[in-house]
């Protein structure tokens, strides 16, 4: 069996940076100067931070978070601003008259990969102008424990009725049933703009902007 041959080391200087060894001089070995220096650094940090706390000049935890100083966010009182498209807890939007926008088409529950949305559709009562034209959810339940916050329900919704723009993330609760958000709870949540509606206008039948059939057709 032939002995393997390795390529020879290149002649001359090896192109590498030398590693600096720890100095072993008297200053390092006596340990004390470094102790004093270390305590000095601690003391400087302490005095600076204490002075900031006393004067109420702490750096803003978000704007100056790369600065020196205490940039801790005290969570429930202070919160990190989420980006505009942050997907938070769902809400059901309303129309201008306060009725819910959802038409119970089941698109969201169909699109949901976690199957966390349950909808029971119902007809509007006799005499309502929307009867036969739209339906409404008798039950609309989102299981926030199952939800994976993918946002597919929002994408799937043809009516802009379900949105994830509350800006709240799912809150920790004591029991599982508290995570089951029902229709009225979802309707009571506000968007970040503080309203229960959405920025997209809904074109009701009969309005000049409405493109399709009217509610007054025979069925």
């Amino acid at each position: 069996m032939a002995t393997p041959t390795f390529p020879k080391k290149p002649a001359g200087r090896v192109n590498a940076t030398p590693v600096a060894y720890t100095l072993r001089n008297a200053e390092v070995k006596s340990y004390l100067p470094e102790v004093v220096r270390g305590v000095g650094v601690s003391m400087k940090n302490f005095l600076d931070n204490t002075r900031e706390m006393l004067r109420g000049e702490r750096p803003d935890p978000v704007l100056d978070r790369f600065d020196d100083g205490i940039t801790t966010i005290s969570y429930p009182e202070q919160k990190r601003p989420y980006p505009e498209r942050f997907r938070g807890v769902h809400r059901l939007t309303t129309r201008a008259d306060g009725s819910m926008r959802c038409v119970a088409c089941l698109c969201c529950s169909t699109a949901c990969p976690a199957q966390c949305i349950f909808i029971e559709a119902g007809e509007y009562p006799e005499g309502d102008s929307r009867r036969g034209y739209e339906r409404y959810p008798v039950k609309f339940v989102v299981d926030e424990l199952r939800c994976i916050f993918c946002g597919y329900c929002v994408e799937a919704c043809p009516c802009d009725a379900i949105r994830m723009d509350t800006g709240n993330h799912a809150v920790p609760y004591d029991s599982r049933d508290q995570f089951i958000y029902d229709r009225d709870l979802l309707l009571s949540l506000q968007g970040r703009d503080g309203t229960f509606e959405t920025a997209n206008p809904r074109h009701e039948p009969g309005e000049p902007t409405h493109p399709g059939v009217t509610r007054e057709h025979e069925h």
Binding site: V62, D68, Q78, G167
Partner: peptide, 30 residues
Amino acid sequence: TPVKHKHTMLGSSAEEAAKSGGTKATPMQA
């Protein structure tokens, strides 16, 4: 004497917050 700060603003969330006037009590604050 007031504390001197060198402001370095990096990151999108900091810009976001600055646009809406800081992190204290804004609608952006979730």
